[in-house]
Design a binder for these strands. Structure first.
Lengths: 340, 340
DNA sequence: CTGAAAGCGCTTACAG
DNA sequence: CTGAAAGCGCTTACAG
């Protein structure tokens, strides 16, 4: 006899001598089943190592047990760390993570127009992705609980988790000012496709504000493509100008690491001739003795996941959508020192 | 009037004046629909921006349109890059990626015992995860096409993609020998929980073999936990011994980067006093001038995804399961030089 | 080429 | 507390 590929609810019902309706109720922990019957059913289900078919369950009105996670990309420290935080949280409750990476404007556009997550997940976490008004509308049309991480705060009152990027920039620049720098440049990240990233804008805003508060105006800003190579290029540009600033605030550690590479290759010593500071506390920042403003990335993912799960849990008390801003922290290493 | 939440096949059928049977056939590209009807249906589906319900489709015998990807973790360069390669490939054909991270033995055990992917995906990609015989059996019980990336070659004739880690180690050690080193140590990665990773074993095998071929035996080997901190610790141990080797082969770039950190902090100059080489070509290797043996990670992910998709495509010609070994390549940077 | 119909494995009112 | 039955949105033989 060929064993059946899969055990279904009918098998469990037969083995425990009840109808599938009772099995369904027992398995979902719903009321309306006597304790004795419930016990019998659960034991039968265990014996057969039965798992509910998510397809059938969802089709009949249940949840999918899946949450979509939308990220710009996965092969960057920030996003993969975020993902690890989310995945760890989902794993504890058996929710499946459907990954959507939107590396460029085309992918983003396609995603919001075709909404491939439709009917496939119970909720969505959107990490950093900048949304146009139309894209927001499309997202709403999914009709799913949504949690945003980083990036713009959603218009409506939807949950958001992140850090204060403007403040982070101010902390970085504040440190440079405090140790005596007055000639501070910035290497800013810009999107090749012209997409405006909330983080980018907040960081340069913080840069200008902090300098402005110190009475410094019209600073040197170079905008390059995000990444190590962009940072390297940014520093090349600064080096090509007549006067070298005494310090450089870099949009992020990846930019700063590239800048450090250029400085090393050019024989400019850090921090003696120039101070460099980034944002993030990327693992490589420690290796390169890069002073930075750390942000808790994994934690952001964890919190976002918890919020989504709370929204999905019918048992959970109804709560107002929360905006969670996690603290950032100056980490002083060897790449910054007072100007000479 | 309140618009319906979701458009279903019936809506498309009505709009194009045919039965849902024809809609289903047209949408799935099956024969038995006249070109004119097909065109009408496709256009109606587009107008309504209809997407097939994966739940219903699968329940009725179709595919889920999902593939499970199992990785040890996502927050490490190797895995996130692999994931990016896989995700990019899936995106082109609209397959959803269900991510499963198995960070420790407990998670791994739970995963293979409860097989949470059961009934949820059409196929599986297993990246690097070491499998016991029992776990292999359990995986087989899923009855799904499976592609392995890295790690052990599966016993049966299942597709595998990866690099030759033993050869990679030999390339690294070969380089050290070629430039004159004779006293070569290794910092090896070991699993805290005692899990035996195929990659780890292959790399130390290559190390010993290459030294053995050069008539060198009984080399210095230090085993530490994988990662930057492990590498740092490994180098501390080497430094604490009476004689410093002239060169160190590191299990991977992450280990090597940690080793470099220790050397810098200890004031030991690289490559003057000691040469260091790693494996992977991690982005930070370039920043740290680390000589290494590069492997194409994203490409491995891409190929694995293509193989899985080919197995899922009924149109695709039946092919024998392939073993694809991608080349590794020595990348010489500043961390290695002839001994003095 | 096209459609009516059975059936996939569940959940949930609706009756007992 | 328990079960018969409708229905979720599809796919696929089976008839035309």
């Amino acid at each position: 006899m060929i064993p059946k590929q899969t055990v279904n609810m009918t098998d469990v019902a037969q083995r425990s001598g009840v109808s599938i309706a009772s099995v369904s109720r027992a398995l979902r922990g719903r009321p309306g089943v006597s304790p004795a019957t419930r016990a019998r059913i659960l034991s039968a289900a265990r014996d057969l190592s039965y798992v509910v078919s998510p397809e059938a369950s969802h089709l009949a009105g249940g949840a999918t047990g899946r949450v979509g996670v939308v990220v710009p990309r996965v092969d960057a420290w920030f996003y993969s760390t975020m993902l690890a935080g989310i995945a760890g949280e989902f794993d504890t409750v058996g929710v499946d993570l459907v990954l959507c990476a939107l590396p460029d404007a085309t992918a983003r556009h396609r995603f919001f127009e075709s909404l491939p997550l439709r009917r496939k997940v119970d909720a969505v976490i959107v990490v950093s992705v900048p949304l146009t008004a139309r894209e927001h509308t499309r997202l709403d049309q999914l009709g799913l609980p949504t949690v945003f991480v980083g990036g713009d705060h959603p218009d409506g009152n939807q949950p958001w988790v992140g850090v204060d990027d403007e403040l982070a920039a101010q902390q970085a620049v504040g440190h440079l000012l405090r140790i005596g720098h007055r000639d501070i440049a910035m290497i800013q990240a810009g999107d090749r496709e012209g997409t405006r990233w909330a983080t980018d804008e907040a960081r340069i805003r913080g840069f200008h504000r902090q300098l402005g508060d110190a009475g410094l105006t019209d600073p040197n800003v170079v905008t390059v493509e995000w990444g190590i190579d962009g940072g390297a290029r940014g520093m090349e540009i600064l080096l090509s100008r007549p006067l070298l600033p005494t310090a450089v605030f870099c949009h992020s550690d990846e930019i700063a690491l590239g800048a450090l590479r250029t400085l090393r290759k050019s024989g400019v010593s850090v921090p003696q001739q120039i101070s460099v500071i980034g944002v993030d506390d990327h693992p490589a920042a420690d290796l390169s003795e890069l002073t930075t403003v750390a942000q808790p990335v994994r934690e952001q993912g964890r919190i976002a996941a918890q919020q989504v799960l709370a929204q999905l849990d019918p048992e959970a008390p109804e709560t107002a959508p929360t905006v969670t801003t996690l603290p950032t922290r100056l980490v002083i290493r060897g790449s910054t020192a007072p100007p000479r």
